[in-house]
């Protein structure tokens, strides 16, 4: 098996670990929601960035159907977001929250850079890890506000019509 297939296997395994061990299996509904919110950013984002020529994906899943990176954008990045949300230190100081956000978004950007550097799963044409870091910070922040709001609304609606 080539290095690229090991890469896809490792990304998939890491994603499973992120949503189970580092996520919260006791909250499957919220976890699913976090995952699809992450996907709603990363998958169309990747398709559009690929379209704009920011990067290429020489070896990929669904090679005939898409030129975008399915393993990274459809599975791995949303899984990171799930783990990020569940461990966000909401009741700690602002400094700690910012440090946590920088660390997680930086970590996932670093994984992206490592994939581009060591495998043919990704090739930056006009893109950098820093840019992904920035996109991550903005989208994680906006996504967290949205998910907090959504969960509180769902809880309120459940309160009106208890099961």
């Amino acid at each position: 098996m080539s290095r690229e297939y090991w890469g896809i296997a490792a990304l998939t395994l890491a994603s499973i670990l992120l949503v189970t061990v580092f996520g919260r299996t006791a909250k499957p509904r919220e976890s699913l929601f976090l995952f699809i919110v992450g996907q709603a950013v990363s998958w169309p984002g990747t398709i559009i960035l690929t379209f704009m020529g920011s990067f290429e994906v020489p070896v990929r899943l669904f090679p005939k159907a898409t030129d975008s990176n399915f393993a990274l954008a459809f599975i791995f990045l949303p899984a990171v977001y799930v783990a990020y949300y569940w461990h966000f230190p909401g009741n700690k100081s602002r400094i700690l929250q910012i440090a946590y956000t920088l660390a997680v978004t930086g970590g996932s950007a670093l994984a992206h850079v490592a994939v581009q550097k060591y495998t043919d799963l990704l090739l930056y044409i006009d893109f950098t890890g820093y840019r992904l870091w920035l996109i991550n910070i903005i989208s994680y922040y906006a996504g967290r506000i949205y998910c907090d709001w959504f969960f509180s609304q769902v809880a309120k609606a459940r309160g009106r019509n208890p099961r």
Binding site: W43, P44, I47, I48, T50, F51, F62, P63, K64, A65, T66, D67, S68, F70, F74
Partner: peptide, 28 residues
């Protein structure tokens, strides 16, 4: 997306006129 990509990948469907045509062969 899982179903759409699979169908195109297996060569069952084509979307000759589509958006983002150069990178995406399903119907975005």
């Amino acid at each position: 997306w899982l179903l759409g990509l699979s169908a195109v990948e297996l060569g069952l469907l084509e979307y000759p006129y589509r958006e983002l045509a150069s990178v995406n062969r399903t119907s975005f």
